[in-house]
Deep mutational scan, measured.
Amino acid sequence: CHSECLGNCSQPDDPTKCVACRNFYLDGRCVETCPPPYYHFQDWRCVNFSFCQDLHHKCKNSRRQGCHQYVIHNNKCIPECPSGYTMNSSNLLCTPCLGPCPKVCHLLEGEKTIDSVTSAQELRGCTVINGSLIINIRGGNNLAAELEANLGLIEEISGYLKIRRSYALVSLSFFRKLRLIRGETLEIGNYSFYALDNQNLRQLWDWSKHNLTITQGKLFFHYNPKLCLSEIHKMEEVSGTKGRQERNDIALKTNGDQASCENELLKFSYIRTSFDKILLRWEPYWPPDFRDLLGFMLFYKEAPYQNVTEFDGQDACGSNSWTVVDIDPPLRSNDPKSQNHPGWLMRGLKPWTQYAIFVKTLVTFSDERRTYGAKSDIIYVQTDATNPSVPLDPISVSNSSSQIILKWKPPSDPNGNITHYLVFWERQAEDSELFELDYCLKGLKLPSRTWSPPFESEDSQKHNQSEYEDSAGECCSCPKTDSQILKELEESSFRKTFEDYLHNVVFVPRKT
């Protein structure tokens, strides 16, 4: 048989008469490798580009789960590009990614509803959504962080984005990388972005840091009482949809009607710091009717980097990364020049730590249904340095008659930039024990000054392991946590139920 035959053949030295091919099969003959313009397919066939392209389009058009959109890589027609490569849609070739590779997620039936953290986790790592997304989240724990972890990498949506009755959302900033909504599939009414009845939605994105392009379709905003109209108009300008909307697409009466839409800028007039305090004062603000001013709200939190936005980490279910302080308005003076500047002394802060701070007014709604208010920009203030805590785990070892090696770990709280350490030492008198000992005694162990690591005695271990207080009263049991108490109650309830079950099964009433 021919060298490319495997198993047997019907005619000697003829690659077209093989029972099976050793390498690849091409047009009725066995070959060692697939010549151009053919590609290896499933490690035994040679196919042309049209064959591989037909497989790709067949799966793409069917949208069946589990099928493969075949691509070409290293002269092979394979189910998908290997790690580190992405497909070129024009020629199906796998090309190296520039940075992290995109991950295209194809949605069944063309859309997916995100109504819980669990459903959001199914899209973790996706960068391109081939379909439409509907966000409908009523509640949950730590929602802002969970949504950002699972949806934060999405850069492109081919269909539309719909935010509907998501009472738990305060902001859409968890879509931190969303840059493009194509609108290839539109919501009824030709809408590519749809926001309806979101009672706590206050911000779409921080438009000073976020760009969003909507290729096709219109915007729809109705019944978002805490979303200011200025935020919607800003989205029109940034996304390129200005002029597409009709009169009733953006409701003037049901958007922002319960919001404090600040239209003035508060400026800080005085800032002073110490290692654990920050004193702030800002310019006074009074609405047209000074009785509408209820006070100020001061927001602050630790910020290692200057990239904080107002609604980071917030949701309507209680999660809030900001510390909020309510401040009463100052006494009002008739003389504008003698107006008191409101302020606040922030206490209990960490030394040498940068804080993000902003302040906003708290006002009631005027009778004319106009909203007044003022808010400052987010500023960054760093507390002063102070003395560091003591170095940890000092170790001293003498390696000769004239040297001592000293080692330690950095302090747990540096409280500033540590530039150097101060080492103090003092000579001590020799131990009298060394002169009084009889060095001729056998088995004498000389006193040693070398360091030995501390260890816990058996008594201390027994005390720590004991669940009861000892007789001397030195140790006591740790208080039980809520989960331990709940577990004990469940076990007790189970024992009672099981005992009742045994009584009912074992003891049967005697027939009379």
Rank of each mutant, 00 (worst) to 15 (best):
K103T: 04
V104H: 05
C105R: 08
H106R: 06
H106Y: 10
L107H: 12
L108M: 11
L108D: 00
E111A: 00
T113F: 01
D115F: 07
D115T: 10
D115I: 08
S116D: 01
S116N: 01
V117Y: 06
V117L: 08
T118I: 01
T118F: 06
A120Q: 06
Q121G: 01
E122P: 02
L123D: 01
T127K: 15
T127G: 13
T127P: 03
T127H: 03
I129N: 00
S132N: 12
S132Q: 07
L133T: 03
L133G: 01
L133K: 06
I135E: 01
I135P: 00
I135N: 00
I137F: 05
R138I: 05
R138P: 05
N141S: 11
A144P: 06
A144L: 15
L147S: 02
A149H: 08
A149N: 15
L151Y: 02
L151F: 03
L153V: 13
L153A: 12
L153G: 14
I154C: 03
E156D: 06
E156Q: 14
E156F: 05
Y160H: 12
Y160V: 08
Y160G: 04
Y160A: 02
I163K: 03
R164V: 05
R165V: 08
R165A: 04
Y167R: 06
Y167S: 02
A168G: 06
L169R: 01
L169A: 14
L169F: 11
L169H: 06
S171A: 07
S171P: 00
L172I: 15
S173M: 11
F174Q: 02
K177A: 08
R179H: 14
L180I: 15
L180W: 08
L180E: 14
L180C: 13
I181N: 04
G183S: 06
T185N: 10
T185S: 11
L186A: 06
L186Y: 12
L186V: 09
I188M: 06
I188D: 12
G189N: 15
N190T: 14
Y191N: 07
F193L: 12
F193H: 04
Y194Q: 13
Y194E: 15
A195F: 05
L196R: 05
D197L: 11
Q199T: 05
Q199D: 10
N200Q: 11
L201E: 00
L201A: 01
L201M: 05
L201V: 09
L201P: 03
R202V: 05
D206A: 12
D206C: 10
W207M: 14
W207I: 14
W207G: 08
S208I: 06
K209Y: 08
K209H: 15
K209L: 11
N211Y: 04
N211P: 07
L212V: 12
T213K: 06
T213P: 05
I214D: 02
I214A: 05
T215H: 09
T215C: 11
T215V: 14
F220Y: 03
H222K: 00
N224H: 11
N224K: 02
K226I: 06
L227C: 15
L227T: 13
C228N: 08
H233S: 09
M235A: 08
E236A: 04
E237G: 07
E237P: 05
V238L: 15
S239T: 13
S239R: 11
T241G: 15
T241R: 06
T241Y: 09
T241W: 11
K242P: 10
G243W: 06
R244P: 11
R244H: 07
Q245P: 13
E246M: 13
R247A: 09
R247V: 11
N248L: 14
N248E: 05
N248Q: 07
A251Q: 08
A251N: 15
A251R: 07
K253C: 03
K253N: 14
N255M: 02
N255T: 06
G256H: 08
Q258A: 04
Q258M: 05
Q258G: 02
A259G: 05
A259S: 06
A259V: 06
A259P: 06
S260F: 02
S260N: 02
C261T: 07
C261H: 03
N263L: 05
N263Y: 02
N263Q: 12
L265E: 09
L265K: 14
F268A: 03
S269R: 14
I271D: 02
R272K: 15
T273K: 14
T273V: 15
T273R: 10
S274H: 11
S274K: 15
F275R: 15
K277R: 11
I278R: 00
L279S: 06
R281T: 10
R281Y: 09
E283H: 10
P284S: 05
P284I: 01
P284L: 03
Y285S: 03
W286C: 07
W286K: 04
P287K: 01
P287N: 00
P287D: 02
P287W: 03
P287Q: 01
P288Q: 13
P288I: 11
D289P: 01
D289Q: 01
D289C: 04
F290P: 04
R291K: 02
R291F: 00
R291L: 02
L294F: 04
G295F: 04
G295T: 02
M297L: 12
L298H: 01
L298S: 05
Y300S: 13
Y300K: 06
Y300H: 14
Y300R: 14
K301A: 04
K301Q: 02
K301P: 02
E302T: 09
P304Q: 02
P304L: 15
Y305F: 14
Q306T: 14
Q306A: 14
N307S: 12
V308S: 10
T309A: 09
F311V: 07
G313K: 15
Q314R: 14
D315L: 13
A316R: 15
A316Y: 15
C317Y: 04
G318V: 06
N320M: 13
S321T: 09
W322P: 07
W322A: 10
T323I: 11
V324H: 01
V324P: 03
V324R: 12
V325K: 03
V325G: 12
D326V: 06
I327N: 02
P329V: 05
L331M: 13
L331F: 07
R332S: 07
R332Y: 09
R332T: 11
S333G: 09
S333D: 12
N334R: 14
D335R: 12
P336Y: 00
Q339E: 04
Q339S: 07
N340Y: 10
H341L: 11
H341K: 13
G343T: 14
G343A: 09
G343R: 10
W344E: 11
M346S: 10
M346I: 08
M346W: 05
G348P: 13
L349R: 05
L349T: 08
L349W: 00
K350Y: 12
P351I: 07
P351Y: 08
W352T: 04
T353Y: 03
Q354R: 14
A356S: 07
I357C: 15
I357N: 01
F358A: 11
F358I: 09
V359W: 00
K360P: 03
V363R: 06
V363E: 00
D367N: 05
D367Y: 10
E368T: 10
R369L: 07
R369Y: 15
R370D: 05
T371Q: 07
G373R: 03
G373P: 05
K375Y: 00
I379D: 01
I379P: 02
I379R: 04
Y380P: 01
Y380F: 11
V381M: 09
V381E: 08
T383R: 02
T383P: 01
D384N: 09
D384S: 06
D384R: 03
T386V: 07
N387Y: 13
P391T: 02
P391Y: 04
L392R: 13
D393S: 14
P394G: 04
I395R: 13
I395S: 06
S396W: 12
V397K: 15
S398F: 02
S398R: 03
S400H: 12
S401A: 15
S402N: 14
Q403V: 05
I404M: 13
I404Q: 15
K407S: 14
